[in-house]
């Protein structure tokens, strides 16, 4: 098993493995690696996502409201974000 990545880097990597994902789907995907850590909560992860979107690493696709009126944003990785994956440690490269 490759060493655990810094969480933001792993988020970017996660988007390279799926077509798109919402915050909830992302958190389900990363729960086994970061679930026990204080930083693994929706508020912190949404900040990462907004920041990464502003920097052009990921982009938004469908944006919907769920039945409870909560915002569901689906993100996917951009070509620019893909470019950053070359800095992944060897063990994480596909």
């Amino acid at each position: 098993m490759a060493a655990v990545l810094p969480m933001r880097f792993r988020i970017l990597h996660f988007f390279s493995t799926v077509k798109e994902a919402s915050t909830k789907e992302l958190m389900n995907g990363l729960h086994s690696e970061y679930g026990s850590e204080g930083q693994f909560n929706e508020k912190v992860i949404n900040e990462h996502l907004l920041s990464m979107r502003a920097g052009g690493l990921i982009e938004t696709n469908d944006i919907e409201l769920d039945q409870g009126g909560n915002l569901v944003v689906n993100y996917s990785i951009t070509e620019f974000g893909q470019g950053r994956l070359k800095y992944l440690p060897k063990a994480w490269k596909a």
């Binding site: 810094p6 969480m7 933001r8 970017l12 930083q39 920097g55 950053r84 800095y87």
Partner: peptide, 9 residues
Amino acid sequence: GMDMVDPAV
């Protein structure tokens, strides 16, 4: 660096 690392870190 912060494209991939948390700013606080």
